[in-house]
């Protein structure tokens, strides 16, 4: 028998109801299965429901229909097996970088000294040694993302959910961070769901790329295994013929959706 998937979202439908507005079905009948240790990227046009899907996986949002299973168990409430890197600022502004990294361990009741020692190790790993005493507003956007990364990974979650973690960074920093992420991930293979709207980023990082259709009623419309060899360098791999081949193939599917999504938002 095959091991249960780390994360199985099956036939998920999400309908938002808000006062004074029509009901809005962001996702309809979406299925996404992630194997243990697999790196899956989800790409799709802006506003199609990528963050919504991730909120479902984290247990922050209950789907209107469909089931969520984590390692075979139905999910009720928060997903205790997952770490979540949010799209927007999520650090606690009143805690220093170091204290932000330790907080998960403190919630679990670890002694402060132990937590601090581990957190210092993580700050080192994300390249922020010596910045631990700074408050979030004293860090650059990229540094804050790295603190958030350390904050999530220090808890060693079995499933890592990442919502466009690098989209605010310049291209050089971004590639550095992508390589760092791959290195961290390959040292200790966890399941990753990586949201992005950048197809190149998706291909260069993942084992599999899932394309979502434009919203409303978004659903996956294509899945592509990425058979590029590992370890990878995200900058170099973009120049290989296989990468370009995959990119062309996936882009064929994505292009229409991006145009559709753009038209929809323009006409709203």
């Amino acid at each position: 028998m095959q091991a249960a998937p780390a994360l199985a979202l099956e036939h998920i439908t999400v309908t938002f109801v808000s006062e004074g507005a029509a009901r809005f079905t962001a996702i309809r009948d979406a299925t996404l299965v992630v194997r243990p240790g697999e790196f899956v990227s989800v790409v799709g046009p802006t506003g199609c429901g990528k963050s919504t899907l991730l909120n479902i996986a984290a247990g922050l949002l209950t789907p209107s229909a469909g089931s969520v299973r984590v390692f075979g168990e139905p999910l009720a409430g928060l997903n205790r097996n997952s770490g979540y890197l949010f799209q927007t600022e999520a650090l606690l502004p009143w805690r220093t970088a170091l204290d932000n990294v330790t907080i998960g361990l403190e919630f679990r009741g670890l002694a402060r000294e132990v937590a601090v020692r581990q957190a210092e190790g993580w700050l080192l790993r994300v390249g922020l040694r010596g910045h631990g005493h700074r408050y979030p507003h004293q860090l650059s956007g990229g540094m804050r993302k790295r603190v958030a990364l350390a904050q999530t990974l220090i808890l060693d979650p079995q499933i890592i959910l990442m919502d466009e973690p690098f989209s605010a960074l310049d291209i050089q920093t971004r590639q550095l961070m992508e390589n760092e992420l791959l290195e961290l991930w390959s040292a200790n293979r966890k399941s990753v769901v990586f949201i992005t709207h950048d197809l190149e980023e998706a291909i260069s990082l993942s084992d599999r790329v899932v394309v979502l259709s434009a919203g409303p009623e978004a659903r996956p419309i294509g899945e592509y295994e990425i058979d590029l060899p590992r370890p990878r360098d995200v900058a170099e791999i973009r120049l290989t013929p296989r990468f370009i081949e995959l990119h062309t193939k996936i882009w064929q599917t994505m292009k229409q959706e991006v145009l559709k999504g753009y038209e929809q938002q323009k006409n709203q």
Binding site: A58, L60, A90, L91, G104, F107
Partner: peptide, 9 residues
């Protein structure tokens, strides 16, 4: 921030 703290346990 609230959701993050919840997810962190």
């Amino acid at each position: 921030v609230l959701a993050n703290a919840r997810v962190l346990g």
